Every structure is written in C-alpha cells, then in structure tokens.
Amino acid sequence: MWKRRMVETFAILTIGDGAIEVISPREHSRLWEAGPEAARKVARFFAENPGYMRALGAAQTGFGIWLALKQYEEV
C-alpha cells in the first residue's frame, strides 16, 4: 500500500511540474538556473527555447497521469 501511495505522490508532483512547464516555460526554467554550470546551461537552453520546455512538460504531464492511473488498476 505504501509503495502505491509513494508512486501516486510522485505522479502528482510530476503532473504539477509538467503543467507549470507548459504554462510558463521560461520562468520555470529560469527558476532552476542554479547549481553546477552544466545544470545552468540546461536551464538556460530551455529558457531560450520555450517550445522544447512545453513539449517536455506535456510529456511529463502525460507520464504523470499514466502513472497515477496505473495505481488504480486491480492488482
């Protein structure tokens, strides 16, 4: 039971993060522009290319929904 709850919690977080990426890709990317230079470069890339961030967010949201629905299947 706890494993399913943890997976669903991860799915909820994934859906929310994906939605923010779709709604506000530049701002979301800039928020995470911190840490090692490699991580900052990735964040800058997505801030400069919001279409890619939106696509990633849509895929992430879809994955989160799929993952959440898997928790409701009969075992």
Results as ranks from 00 to 15, higher is better:
residue 21 E to A: 15
residue 47 A to P: 05
residue 2 W to F: 10
residue 21 E to V: 02
residue 9 T to N: 00
residue 46 F to W: 07
residue 15 I to C: 09
residue 2 W to P: 03
residue 31 L to A: 10
residue 6 M to K: 05
residue 17 D to E: 12
residue 56 L to R: 11
residue 51 G to N: 08
residue 29 S to C: 11
residue 5 R to V: 05
residue 41 K to T: 12
residue 52 Y to P: 02
residue 33 E to C: 09
residue 14 T to L: 10
residue 59 A to K: 08
residue 49 N to M: 05
residue 40 R to H: 03
residue 20 I to N: 11
residue 23 I to Y: 14
residue 18 G to V: 03
residue 61 T to P: 01
residue 27 E to A: 07
residue 33 E to I: 00
residue 56 L to A: 14
residue 60 Q to I: 04
residue 55 A to L: 13
residue 31 L to E: 05
residue 47 A to R: 07
residue 31 L to R: 04
residue 52 Y to D: 06
residue 55 A to E: 02
residue 3 K to W: 10
residue 27 E to H: 04
residue 38 A to I: 14
residue 27 E to G: 04
residue 49 N to A: 09
residue 14 T to Q: 15
residue 42 V to K: 11
residue 21 E to R: 15
residue 13 L to T: 06
residue 25 P to L: 01
residue 13 L to P: 01
residue 46 F to T: 00
residue 13 L to V: 11
residue 31 L to H: 10
residue 14 T to R: 14
residue 23 I to C: 06
residue 12 I to W: 13
residue 15 I to L: 06
residue 62 G to L: 13
residue 45 F to V: 03
residue 42 V to W: 06
residue 34 A to R: 14
residue 39 A to H: 13
residue 62 G to I: 09
residue 57 G to T: 05
residue 38 A to R: 09
residue 12 I to K: 08
residue 54 R to C: 04
residue 26 R to F: 02
residue 11 A to W: 04
residue 49 N to G: 06
residue 33 E to T: 10
residue 52 Y to W: 11
residue 50 P to R: 04
residue 53 M to K: 14
residue 46 F to L: 15
residue 40 R to N: 04
residue 35 G to Q: 08
residue 23 I to T: 08
residue 17 D to T: 13
residue 8 E to N: 15
residue 20 I to T: 09
residue 44 R to L: 08
residue 35 G to Y: 09
residue 28 H to K: 11
residue 18 G to C: 00
residue 47 A to H: 06
residue 29 S to N: 13
residue 38 A to L: 14
residue 38 A to C: 13
residue 48 E to C: 05
residue 20 I to A: 13
residue 20 I to F: 15
residue 33 E to F: 00
residue 41 K to W: 12
residue 11 A to I: 11
residue 25 P to S: 00
residue 17 D to Q: 13
residue 14 T to I: 08
residue 25 P to F: 00
residue 61 T to L: 12
residue 37 E to A: 15
residue 9 T to M: 12
residue 13 L to S: 09
residue 7 V to R: 05
